[in-house]
Design a protein around this nucleic acid. Structure first.
Length: 255
DNA sequence: ATGTCGCTCGAGGAGCGA
């Protein structure tokens, strides 16, 4: 099966990009972040026409997540954990015994800010939830925009980003917590030396200069890691007119 | 290296978040 995760930065603006990619690739499951739309305005019908169902958890202006899957697949939506507030950043389903968890981790603004602490607190709630969930089901795929570049190889300019938001020690320590409870950063596992990125700032022509970071990830619980045969980053979506500032990350799984 | 995008409110452009 093929899965993907993409921060679309407004599903309404990126609707054609997303629909075209789904039609071309025929993925089984797609996770998106930053839909930026209330549930009553979600463009569900566009996906229905393509043969996909949608589950979404959104709010006006900010945040918002969704999962698309083929109409003939039966999924069960999972109850989210209790986060510090009601921002819409988590949606999860169980499909054929595997949990697919889609997250939009808070950005954190700047190291030491109130939003930074919120980011760390939010991630701790997620990790505690995963620990509990693993006791019931050890097949988990955790995917989304983590807003963390796990190591220096994931950063275009290490000196410029040193100790900055998305690269700080506190964020990287929390990312290590996912590994401690058994999760694998599959892109890095299958591509140990590749310096590739998933996000480039709109400002200062960041994409053309390849001033990027790898902050979008697919993490697998230990039993799911050998199930992933291929993983890649689709940068062509970042080259389109009016692109998202993120690339899409996809993976092939043995079914 | 204070840049650019998307959104809201509300009718033009400021303010927020990323």
């Amino acid at each position: 099966m093929k899965i993907a995760t993409w921060n679309v930065n407004s599903i309404r603006v990126r609707l054609t990009h997303l629909l075209d990619w789904i039609e071309h690739e025929g993925p089984d499951l797609v996770s998106v972040q930053e839909t930026k739309v209330a549930d009553e305005s979600f463009p569900k019908l566009n996906f229905t026409e393509l043969g996909y169902s949608a589950l979404y958890s959104g709010q006006k202006s900010y945040n918002g997540v969704a999962i698309f899957f083929k109409n003939d697949i039966v999924v069960e939506e999972l109850e989210p954990p209790i986060f510090p507030d009601n921002q819409k950043r988590f949606i999860a389903v169980n499909m054929s015994g595997v949990d697919f968890v889609n997250v939009y981790v808070p950005n954190g603004s700047s190291v030491g800010s109130t939003k930074y602490q919120y980011k760390l607190d939010w991630l701790q709630v997620l990790i505690d939830w995963l620990k509990q969930r693993l006791k019931k089901n050890n097949k988990i795929v955790l995917m989304g925009d983590f807003n963390i570049a796990p190591a220096d190889i994931d950063v275009h300019d290490v000196e410029r980003w040193k100790d900055k938001i998305l690269c700080s020690e506190g964020e990287r320590n929390i990312f290590e917590q996912f590994k401690k409870i058994g999760f694998c950063d599959v892109y890095r596992y299958l591509h140990p030396c590749d310096r590739n990125f998933t996000w480039w700032d709109y400002r200062l022509n960041g994409f053309a200069r390849n001033w990027g970071l790898r902050i979008d990830h697919i993490l697998t619980s230990s039993v799911m890691t050998p199930v992933v045969t291929k993983i890649g980053i689709n940068k062509s979506l970042r080259e389109l007119d009016r692109p998202s500032d993120h690339a899409l990350v996809w993976a092939d799984l043995i079914t």
